[in-house]
Structure formats: structure tokens, C-alpha cells
């Protein structure tokens, strides 16, 4: 098991974000653009292959979008939230495609770097606050943070807490997605290192290398699950934030 520490350091360096020489891209952005093209092509092709009797790629896209519409948008915001389906749908499918291509060995998920997740979380933050301000006016939206029926010194304290929790939202949103994707790849990488190192062991001890391979398979299934869950969580939290901004002040 010599060289384990060295190999783990190599892995972490490899999983970090690096600029590609000569291009205005990092390694993660390269894969993000692949996911971008795949998402775009998938939906453009699917939306041209729709039929009354559901089948093929059109049916897959329909099922996905119907799930987001009924189980995320309408469930959280009610029927009046349907107008936000394109926004939340784009978030869900772009994250999902990124997470999924990251599972191909040698690929990385565009969501596995803070640059991406912070950007998107800030987009969500700006969008939902803009929606709140447009619905209630700047002053009305701000007033909605002031809790009614609480004695005033305490109410100001609560309001400050509310505001802080709102400003923490983009941070939690971005770190949750990034950490899940990054950590998943670290785990897969470390089991790969174990496999390689154990197969270098002398004699019958090589058999031990089968254990991390089995773990690898289990973790792959788990990461597939995480890829869906994290896209779903990001999308549903976006819906919750927008819904909250629309109904601000109705405690």
C-alpha cells in the first residue's frame, strides 16, 4: 500500500479545476459545454419527434418535463407557477445532464466545481428576489421580512435573521450541489486507487483487489441516484424560493 498518500494527492489535484492552456476554459467547463450541447440537442430533437401515441426520445423528454411540471412546479407553487416551468426545467435538465456525463469514466460533471454552482445559485437568488420585488414592490417585499405580531425589538432581530437566511441560500444551494458531485468523484477515485494498489500486492493478496471493485460498482449505482437527487433538490429549492417570493408576507 505504498504511495497511497501520494496517489490521493494526485487524485485531488486532478479533480481540482484547472485552466486549459490556450483556451478560455477550465477542465470542468469543457465537460460543461459537452453537457450543454447534449441537453440542447436532446430537447431540440425530442421536441420535433412528438407524437400523440408516446414513443421514443419524444416520450422520454415528455416524461421528464411532465415530472418537473407536475411534481416540482405545480406541487410547490400551484397551477399559477406553470409560467416558471421553462426556468426550473432548464435548471433541472442542465444539472442532470452535467451530473450524468460526469459518471462516464474520465469525464467530469460541469457541476463538480464551485464556479458553476455559485453562478447558478446566484442566478436563482437574483431571479427569485426580482420576482418578489416585481410582485410586491421593493418596499412591500422588504416589509414581508418583518414578522407581524411580534414585539418590535424582537421583530427587528427576527427580520435580521430572516435576511441572513436569505443571503445564505445561494451559498447552501451551491455548496450542496458542488460537494455532492465532488465528493462522489473523490470516493470513486479512491476506490480506484485501492484497486490498483491492491492488485500490485504480492501473491494471493491480489484477491483483495476485488473488494474495492465491488465497492466501486455499488458506489456507481449510488452516484447515479445522487445525480438525479441533486438535480431534483436544486430544482425543487428553486421552486420553493420563487413560490416564497410570490407569496411573501402571507405567513
Amino acid at each position: 500500500m505504498s504511495g497511497l498518500g501520494e496517489k490521493v494527492n494526485e487524485l485531488l489535484f486532478e479533480l481540482g479545476s484547472h485552466k486549459i492552456p490556450g483556451l478560455p476554459l477550465t477542465n470542468y467547463m469543457f465537460f460543461l459545454l459537452i453537457a450543454f450541447v447534449l441537453t440542447l440537442v436532446f430537447f431540440l430533437v425530442a421536441s420535433r419527434r412528438l407524437s400523440m401515441v408516446p414513443k421514443g426520445i419524444g416520450n422520454v423528454a415528455e416524461m421528464g418535463l411532465e415530472f418537473i411540471r407536475d411534481n416540482v412546479v405545480v406541487d410547490v407553487m400551484g397551477p399559477e407557477g406553470k409560467g416558471f416551468l421553462p426556468f426550473i426545467g432548464t435548471i433541472f435538465f442542465f444539472i442532470l445532464f452535467n451530473n450524468l456525463i460526469g459518471l462516464i469514466p474520465g469525464f467530469k460533471p460541469g457541476t463538480g466545481t464551485m464556479g458553476t454552482t455559485v453562478t447558478w445559485a446566484l442566478v436563482v437568488f437574483i431571479v427569485y428576489n426580482a420576482i418578489g420585488i416585481r410582485k410586491h414592490g421593493a418596499w412591500g417585499y422588504l416589509k414581508s421580512f418583518y414578522p407581524p405580531g411580534v414585539v418590535w425589538p424582537l421583530a427587528v432581530f427576527v427580520m435580521i435573521l430572516e435576511l441572513i437566511s436569505h443571503f445564505i441560500r445561494p451559498l447552501t444551494l451551491s455548496v450542496r450541489l458542488f460537494a455532492n458531485m465532488f465528493a462522489g468523484h473523490v470516493i470513486l477515485g479512491i476506490f480506484s486507487i485501492f484497486t490498483v494498489l491492491l492488485f500490485q500486492a504480492p501473491g494471493v493478496a491480489k484477491v483483495m483487489g476485488l473488494l474495492p471493485i465491488a465497492m466501486q460498482i455499488v458506489m456507481y449505482a449510488f452516484e447515479l441516484f445522487v445525480a438525479f437527487i441533486q438535480a431534483y433538490v436544486f430544482a425543487i429549492l428553486t421552486a420553493v424560493y420563487i413560490g416564497g417570493a410570490l407569496h411573501a408576507g402571507e405567513h
Binding site: K19, L25, L32, F36, L85, P86, F94, G115
Partner: peptide
Amino acid sequence: IYEVIVSLVSFLVLFGVLAKFAF
């Protein structure tokens, strides 16, 4: 800054195209 620009622009383009032509 590269990542912010690339992820922001790609998200906005994807949103525009999907919202207009695909969804």
C-alpha cells in the same frame, strides 16, 4: 471568472433556446 462566464452564458443560452423552441 472563466467558469462564471461559461456557466452563466451557457445557462442563459440554454434557457432561451429551450424556453422558446423545445419546451
